[in-house]
Protein backbone atom coordinates (compact mmCIF):
# COMPACT_ATOMS: atom_id res chain seq x y z
CA UNK A 1 0.00 0.00 0.00
CA UNK A 2 1.22 3.48 -0.86
CA UNK A 3 0.47 6.56 1.14
CA UNK A 4 1.18 10.14 0.13
CA UNK A 5 2.08 12.63 2.83
CA UNK A 6 3.32 16.18 3.06
CA UNK A 7 6.24 16.54 5.43
CA UNK A 8 5.42 19.27 7.95
CA UNK A 9 8.82 19.23 9.64
CA UNK A 10 9.88 22.42 7.91
CA UNK A 11 8.28 25.00 5.61
CA UNK A 12 9.60 23.32 2.46
CA UNK A 13 6.72 20.82 2.75
CA UNK A 14 8.19 18.00 0.65
CA UNK A 15 5.66 15.58 -0.84
CA UNK A 16 6.55 12.13 0.48
CA UNK A 17 5.48 8.67 -0.64
CA UNK A 18 5.49 5.88 1.92
CA UNK A 19 5.20 2.23 1.04
CA UNK A 20 3.56 0.14 3.71
CA UNK A 21 3.22 -3.61 3.87
CA UNK A 22 1.43 -5.37 6.73
CA UNK A 23 1.54 -2.19 8.75
CA UNK A 24 5.29 -1.83 8.29
CA UNK A 25 7.05 0.94 6.45
CA UNK A 26 9.04 -0.55 3.54
CA UNK A 27 10.28 2.66 1.92
CA UNK A 28 10.09 6.43 2.18
CA UNK A 29 10.73 8.57 -0.91
CA UNK A 30 10.42 12.25 -1.84
CA UNK A 31 11.95 13.63 1.35
CA UNK A 32 14.78 16.14 0.98
CA UNK A 33 16.38 15.42 4.34
CA UNK A 34 16.33 12.72 7.00
CA UNK A 35 13.81 14.58 9.13
CA UNK A 36 11.31 13.83 6.38
CA UNK A 37 12.02 10.14 6.71
CA UNK A 38 11.49 10.24 10.45
CA UNK A 39 8.32 12.29 10.02
CA UNK A 40 6.83 9.83 7.53
CA UNK A 41 7.56 6.83 9.76
CA UNK A 42 6.07 8.54 12.81
CA UNK A 43 3.03 9.65 10.84
CA UNK A 44 2.20 6.02 10.04
CA UNK A 45 2.80 4.65 13.53
CA UNK A 46 2.34 7.49 16.05
CA UNK A 47 1.63 10.94 14.62
CA UNK A 48 3.09 13.76 16.71
CA UNK A 49 3.08 17.56 16.49
CA UNK A 50 4.83 20.34 18.31
CA UNK A 51 2.43 22.52 20.25
CA UNK A 52 2.61 26.30 20.50
CA UNK A 53 0.22 28.42 22.53
CA UNK A 54 0.36 30.98 25.31
CA UNK A 55 0.05 30.92 29.08
CA UNK A 56 -1.38 33.53 31.46
CA UNK A 57 1.19 35.64 33.24
CA UNK A 58 0.76 37.66 36.45
CA UNK A 59 2.40 41.10 36.62
CA UNK A 60 3.46 40.84 33.00
CA UNK A 61 3.78 43.65 30.48
CA UNK A 62 1.32 41.58 28.44
CA UNK A 63 -1.40 39.30 29.88
CA UNK A 64 0.07 36.19 28.21
CA UNK A 65 3.48 34.80 27.30
CA UNK A 66 3.97 32.47 24.32
CA UNK A 67 5.08 28.90 25.04
CA UNK A 68 5.96 25.75 23.11
CA UNK A 69 6.36 22.08 23.86
CA UNK A 70 10.05 21.18 24.20
CA UNK A 71 9.43 18.26 21.86
CA UNK A 72 6.52 16.90 19.86
CA UNK A 73 3.41 15.58 21.62
CA UNK A 74 1.04 12.90 20.30
CA UNK A 75 -1.47 14.50 17.97
CA UNK A 76 -4.42 13.15 19.95
CA UNK A 77 -3.10 14.66 23.20
CA UNK A 78 -3.01 18.26 21.93
CA UNK A 79 -6.33 19.33 23.44
CA UNK A 80 -5.56 17.70 26.77
CA UNK A 81 -2.27 19.61 26.86
CA UNK A 82 -4.14 22.81 26.02
CA UNK A 83 -6.47 22.47 29.00
CA UNK A 84 -3.52 21.93 31.36
CA UNK A 85 -1.74 24.99 29.94
CA UNK A 86 -4.86 27.14 30.03
CA UNK A 87 -5.45 26.40 33.70
CA UNK A 88 -1.90 27.48 34.62
CA UNK A 89 -0.72 30.98 35.54
CA UNK A 90 2.92 31.97 35.83
CA UNK A 91 4.59 35.02 37.34
CA UNK A 92 6.69 37.61 35.52
CA UNK A 93 9.61 38.05 34.99
CA UNK A 94 9.82 35.31 32.38
CA UNK A 95 12.63 34.60 29.97
CA UNK A 96 12.97 32.52 26.82
CA UNK A 97 13.52 28.88 27.76
CA UNK A 98 11.95 29.04 31.25
CA UNK A 99 10.13 25.79 31.99
CA UNK A 100 6.50 26.69 32.60
CA UNK A 101 5.05 23.18 33.04
CA UNK A 102 7.31 20.23 33.63
CA UNK A 103 6.63 16.85 32.00
CA UNK A 104 3.12 17.72 30.86
CA UNK A 105 0.66 14.79 31.21
CA UNK A 106 3.67 12.60 31.87
CA UNK A 107 4.56 12.74 28.18
CA UNK A 108 8.21 13.47 28.89
CA UNK A 109 7.87 16.91 27.31
CA UNK A 110 8.09 20.30 29.02
CA UNK A 111 6.20 23.47 28.19
CA UNK A 112 8.73 26.30 27.87
CA UNK A 113 8.43 30.06 27.41
CA UNK A 114 9.35 31.42 23.97
CA UNK A 115 9.50 35.13 24.76
CA UNK A 116 10.63 37.53 27.44
CA UNK A 117 8.37 39.41 29.78
CA UNK A 118 10.28 41.63 32.16
CA UNK A 119 7.15 42.27 34.22
CA UNK A 120 5.77 45.58 35.45
Amino acid sequence: MKKNLICVSCPLGCPIEVEIENGEVISVTGNTCKRGDAYARAEITNPVRSLTTSVKVENGVHPVVPVKSSGPVPKDKMFECMSVINSATIKAPVKIGDVVIENILGLGVDIVATNFDAGI
Binding site: S9, S50, T52, S54, K68, I96, T114, N115, F116
Partner: peptide, 22 residues
Protein backbone atom coordinates in the same frame (compact mmCIF):
# COMPACT_ATOMS: atom_id res chain seq x y z
CA UNK B 1 3.91 34.78 15.32
CA UNK B 2 4.23 32.38 18.25
CA UNK B 3 4.06 29.17 16.21
CA UNK B 4 7.26 27.38 15.28
CA UNK B 5 8.70 27.07 11.81
CA UNK B 6 11.19 29.89 11.76
CA UNK B 7 14.93 29.53 11.42
CA UNK B 8 15.26 26.02 10.07
CA UNK B 9 17.37 27.23 7.17
CA UNK B 10 19.25 29.92 9.02
CA UNK B 11 19.81 28.43 12.47
CA UNK B 12 19.21 24.77 11.63
CA UNK B 13 16.53 24.56 14.32
CA UNK B 14 12.87 25.22 14.43
CA UNK B 15 12.10 28.37 16.41
CA UNK B 16 8.98 30.39 17.15
CA UNK B 17 8.75 33.96 15.83
CA UNK B 18 9.73 35.67 19.12
CA UNK B 19 12.64 33.26 19.58
CA UNK B 20 13.91 33.96 16.07
CA UNK B 21 13.60 37.71 16.61
CA UNK B 22 15.11 37.32 20.09
Amino acid sequence: CIHTGFGLHYFGEELSGPEYAG
